[in-house]
Design a binder for these strands. Sequence first.
DNA 1: AAACTCGCATGATAATCATCATGCGAATGT
DNA 2: ACATTCGCATGATGATTATCATGCGAGTTT
Lengths: 202, 202
Amino acid sequence: MGTTKPNRGKRAESKDESKQRILAAAADMLREEGGGSFSVADVMARAGLTHGAFYSHFPDKDALIEAAFRAAFNYRESWLAAAEGAPAHERVPRLLEGYLNAKHRDRPAAGCAFAACAQEFAHGTAAQRRAFADEIETTLSRLTALLGGKDGNADTAACESEVIGLLSLCVGAMSLARAVEDPALSTRILEAALNYGRGPAA
Amino acid sequence: MGTTKPNRGKRAESKDESKQRILAAAADMLREEGGGSFSVADVMARAGLTHGAFYSHFPDKDALIEAAFRAAFNYRESWLAAAEGAPAHERVPRLLEGYLNAKHRDRPAAGCAFAACAQEFAHGTAAQRRAFADEIETTLSRLTALLGGKDGNADTAACESEVIGLLSLCVGAMSLARAVEDPALSTRILEAALNYGRGPAA
DNA sequence: AAACTCGCATGATAATCATCATGCGAATGT
DNA sequence: ACATTCGCATGATGATTATCATGCGAGTTT
């Protein structure tokens, strides 16, 4: 057999590509404006299609939001990757700096989906909330793996506190920094949270 | 002059009362569901009125949301009050416990407006974002006054970090805890953030 | 108490959407 | 080649909702 068994026909393949474009568009718009603010037609247009095609890809808008959320974790990957390359004691600062910066604040569409979606999902469907929990668990696992053996003490409870605290701090500071009108205050928030997370030592 | 110069007539007074009821209803619903989710008619009904009366109280829905947000800080007052009564070194734990608990998580309508509104206001009107910034400034001042002289070191920068970090941690953890479907995970988040905020010492 | 004000209710209006129904045309299978 | 399938576009439909227009009746003024 030639390549890895395409066997799907040009048509199915093109449908998959469409779906990917829809998901990518929705993932951006979800983080940029929030799921309540964009219309199905908006997303489809951004994906280069028209509204009618939507329902052959997703059962309804809520399902799109859930799927788009799950597809919106490209940021997490690069965030973690940047810290992986650092020596153990540099990792927390690296994570903080990779998150709590102006570029991240100003480009939510390319950023953390937790910070962009948390409030909205609090009133979302059960499936959406499950997706949120899933992604939180995944993120916590990754962070734990990254920071777990930080010092000699691999104490489970302490590590859980550190990992969850770090993520909460990041998400909270970003939420506040984005909601505030005054740019100077916004920057103060990011920088102060960065300091706080670095700990009293540094 | 008898009492404090009522001089306003029964009609004006009743209008003020109506406005207060509208604001109270909106403040609750804003924190419960978010401004995008309730309708003007919903709020008016909750205030015991009908939709038509709305526009003689507020110019539009955005203005209501801003005003309701500003009226939604009753929680902050009791939160701070509970810590004021404590000795200096007990105040941070007191604040963390007063915020990061299940009751607060489960009754957003009576809780912190930052945690409930941050994401929504990030895409709100300029007036709304200004209101958000104002309330943040006020909250930070209050926290600074409360924690400022905590130890001998009243270092301005260190205190700003602590105060902003604390608030960010609280808001972030609450946002995550509310967005997650799994109740066990939700509780883990609150408790871990609480530990994190207490510092490595305790 | 007649004239007037004004808070609030009822009843449009118009826009925005999610979702469904229909049809064309390209891809597929026989 | 012919019949079929299916992705996508066009065009409803119905619901929700912000906002405006109108009118009544209680309160206020002279």
